[in-house]
Each structure stands twice: as C-alpha cells, then as structure tokens.
Computed example of a mutant assay.
Amino acid sequence: MGTEQICAGRTVIVTGAGRGIGRAHALAFAAEGARVVVNDIGTALDGASTGETPGEQVVAEIKALGGEAVANGDDVADWAGSRRLIRQAIDTFGGLDVLVNNAGFVRDRMLVNLGEDEWDAVIRVHLKGHFCTMRHAAEYWRGESKAGRHVDARIINTSSGAGLQGSVGQGNYGAAKAGIAGLTLTASAEFGRYGVTVNAIAPSARTRMTETVFAETMAAPEDGFDAMAPENVSPLVVWLGSTQSARVTGRMFEVEAGKVALGDGWRHGTPVDRGARWDPAELGPVVADLIAGSVAQEPVYGA
C-alpha cells in the first residue's frame, strides 16, 4: 500500500465494485489507506443473476495487498438491502465516511422499441439505487451530527455523458443518469448541514456497459498509456472521498483518460421580457433570437 495515504482510516462503500470502474475504485481507495466495503450483487450486464461472487474476489485482492475490506451482496435498489449495506460498514468498521454509488447495468434499445420492464429495471438500479443508499447513509450522518460528533463525509455519485448530453439507444439509461445529476444537486444542498459533500462524475472508460457501444475506440493499446482503462477514473474519486475535498460539493466532473473537467449544467438564460402575457403568434422570432444568441448545444451521442 502507498506511503502518503490520503484516505487513511476512512471507511468507504463502493457499490457495483466487483468489476470495471467500481473494482478500480475499491482497489484505489484501499491503496490510499481506506477500509472498503465492496458491494456487488453478482449480475450480468443486463442485471440477470450470474451466481458469481466478484465482490469477494476484490476483497481477496485488497487483503493480499495488506488492506482491509469486506464483501457485501445486497441489492442497492432494495430498501432493506441498502440499509443493510450501510449498517454493515458501520458495524464492521465503526462508522462510515464515504459512499461511492457506482452500481448499474444497461438494457439498451431505441425508445420506440423500449419495453416497460426495460425502462423500470434501469431506472430502478441506477436512480433508485443511488437514492436508497444515500438516504440511509445520510440518516446515519444526521444522527452523528445531532449527537455532536464531527462528520466529514462524502458521497460520490456516477452519472454519464448519456445523462448530460443524451445518447441514442439509451433513453432509459440517459434518463436515469440525468436524474442522478439532479439528485446530486439537491443532496448537496440538503446534506451540507450535516458535514456531507455530494458530487458526481461522468466517466468515460472501458467497461462491460461501454465495450459494445465503443468497441473500436476503446480497444486497449499494445503499449503506452491505456486511455480507456477504468483505473484512470479512480484517482479523482479517491480525492473526492478524502478530507482534502471538504470545500467541493454539488459539482459534476467529467473524467476520461488523463483529463478532468467540470461539467456545467443548465443555467438561466437571458430572458426577453414583454412585460405582459405573450401572444403565441409573437413567439416565433423571439425563440429564434434566443437560440441564435445562445451557446450551441452539445451533440447527442450517436446522433
């Protein structure tokens, strides 16, 4: 493990940590001295159970490197299961400092072909899964704060460019990820009083969810820097989970390869004020002028 460990002694939950970006997060936190709860339900890309225990494998990797970790197999979108996850961290390690919401899967389909079950499943695991864990963690931190104990906690959520700019064939996933962006803003405003910051990332990396969509551009290089390695995303997440990030909250970070950027979301535009109710026939040139004077929209992925 490292020498200058910026998360030494902190207890961290990483959801969906058995593979991909979540696994990279768990290992990176452990390398920085954190005690890690590795949550993974062991599902296939579409959410079906595989019977595997990838979370336990990650725990074994951490322990082999001298770190502390335990596995958790609860469903983050289940109300009781997400409560058990938070409780396991507290009971095992004496508290909770960081919650990294990463768990998810995709059921990609064009909107005109998307089934109700495919919509519900993706919204459930991504958006409800984020809410459930945040809700139970925040309840714990609120109790600690009201009891007069110092809280310096972090939540790092996982959104996506699909949620920020849209993505053809991923209407359910994009809607869930956009919801996570909005949830992050609200939680950052509400949880600050308890000593909790809330931020989100929109990562680009090679994972099970992206390998078929970006197969040609995400191939690992034969040598040199692997720009699409999941491990490239984790350093920022670890920093956001450390005590050094206490003044950063309500932010969306785009992370890809060696690049880190702030994603600026919806902002109030400059209004045209008639001073009275508009007549519908008057609004055509008004809207045209507003669009002409605005910043060009980001293109939808896949459009």
Score class of each variant (00 low, 15 high):
Q170L: 14
S242F: 06
V112W: 04
R124E: 15
V36M: 08
E222D: 12
M110S: 10
K259M: 12
V100L: 06
R83G: 06
Q57Y: 04
R142I: 03
V112K: 04
E118C: 00
T92G: 05
V125P: 01
R206I: 05
K146Q: 14
W119F: 08
D273G: 02
E231R: 06
I86W: 02
A261H: 10
A205V: 05
R107K: 15
V248F: 09
E298L: 08
V237Q: 07
V255I: 06
G95W: 12
T53G: 03
V58T: 11
Y173D: 13
A175K: 08
K128V: 13
G258A: 15
G163Q: 02
T249P: 02
G269L: 09
V295I: 09
L85I: 04
E216P: 11
Y301K: 07
A176I: 12
P221A: 13
R87T: 15
L283N: 08
V98E: 12
G269F: 10
G269R: 12
T184V: 09
W239P: 03
E139V: 07
R83L: 09
V122R: 00
R142M: 08
A137Y: 01
W266Q: 10
L111Q: 04
G224S: 09
Q5P: 01
T3P: 03
K177W: 12
E118N: 00
A303Y: 13
H150K: 15
A153H: 01
F105D: 01
A31R: 14
F214M: 15
I180D: 03
A200N: 14
G258T: 11
V37C: 00
V58M: 05
H25L: 04
T133Y: 01
D40E: 04
S234M: 06
L65Y: 10
E4F: 08
V98Q: 13
M228K: 12
A121K: 07
T158Q: 11
A292T: 11
T92S: 09
G18Y: 03
A281T: 08
A178I: 02
R274V: 03
A215K: 10
L65P: 00
D226S: 02
R142D: 05
P221Q: 08
E32V: 00
K146S: 09
A202G: 11
T133H: 00
M1Q: 14
V255N: 00
W239K: 03
Y173E: 02
G94M: 07
N102Y: 01
I86T: 08
A153L: 08
G265Y: 09
G250I: 13
L164R: 09
T210D: 14
A30M: 08
R83S: 08
R206W: 15
M209S: 14
P285F: 11
G42W: 01
E61N: 09
A162I: 02
M134G: 04
G241A: 00
V106T: 15
P235F: 04
H268F: 10
I62P: 01
T217N: 13
V125E: 04
P221E: 01
T243N: 15
M218Q: 15
M228R: 03
T186Y: 11
A64Y: 10
I13R: 00
N232C: 04
L164C: 03
V260K: 12
V14I: 12
